[in-house]
């Protein structure tokens, strides 16, 4: 089953990359989310998966009674999800504002910072 998850990770990444390579800001945003999900699943799978035993110790015990899921990747992913969401919200609002200000969602037309015809640097001291 690990291999199936690994293949699924590949699909997530491929979709994310494909969408990120689009010129539309909103599609890039969705691609970012999917790529993030893929990476989360990657970390999860790399920490080995077990079925159904959460890393929670029964309240009467000091140690888990049997093998449990690896808690470390879970802790890493938990914060990654929340931060990924903040990032998503920020990018969404940024894209929205860019759309309102520039009337465009195509990255090719957003050339304020790097204009089409950059003048040569001045040849003097």
């Amino acid at each position: 089953m690990d291999y199936v998850l690994a293949a699924l990770v590949g699909l997530f990444i491929a979709m994310g990359v494909y969408l990120l390579l689009s010129r539309s800001v909103i599609r890039m945003l969705i691609g970012m989310t999917i790529l993030g999900n893929g990476v989360n699943l990657l970390i999860f799978t790399a920490g080995r998966v077990t079925r159904e035993v959460a890393p929670i110790i029964p309240s009467a015990l000091e140690q888990p009674s049997g093998p449990i899921a690896n808690p470390l990747p879970q802790a890493l992913i938990l914060t990654a999800i929340v931060i990924g969401f903040s990032m998503f919200a920020f990018l969404l609002v940024l894209a929205f504002r860019a759309y309102q200000s520039l009337d465009a969602d195509n990255t090719d037309t957003m050339r304020l910072a790097e204009p089409e015809q950059t003048p040569n640097p001045p040849l003097s001291y």
């Binding site: 690990d2 291999y3 997530f12 990359v17 893929g38 799978t45 080995r48």
Partner: peptide, 28 residues
């Protein structure tokens, strides 16, 4: 774009499978 995406996805998949064949250091 499609080729690049598939190459990236396949690469990550293979890498992950390769990782899974190894043993996990569970000390932490």
């Amino acid at each position: 774009d499609g080729t690049l995406a598939i190459v990236c996805g396949a690469g990550v998949s293979l890498l992950l499978m390769l990782v899974l064949t190894g043993t996990l250091d569970t000390r932490l």
